[in-house]
Amino acid sequence: MAVIVRIPTPLRSLTGGNEEVHVEEAGTVSDVIDRLEVKHAGMKDRLLDDKGVRKFINIYVGEEDIRFLDGLRTAVKDGEQISIVPAIAGG
């Protein structure tokens, strides 16, 4: 089992076009991002700055925004889905 990370379109250039990435052995959202970085270099910088999650990025565990949980320390379980939702500007 693994955590399933939904990759938004603007970040799929880092995942070879894959819209989902499976991450194993992660206990928190922070762990997930570290493991994503190992598999897809550059991902961490697109998601985080020195203060935490970038201001124009939202990360959801299931249907919950991690800002309203424990932030990057939010626990994740096998089979859970993590969604990365960036601001988009087109119209």
């Binding site: 603007p10 970038r54 201001k55 124009f56 939202n58 960036p86 601001a87 500007a89 087109g90 119209g91």
Partner: peptide, 23 residues
């Protein structure tokens, strides 16, 4: 939801494209 304007250039529909029915 989104705290501030993202840095750097944005990719708009004119560059990135958009599927008509989505709009």
């Amino acid at each position: 939801l989104f705290e501030d304007i993202p840095p750097g250039a944005q990719a708009g529909c004119d560059v990135a494209g958009v599927v008509g029915p989505i709009c």
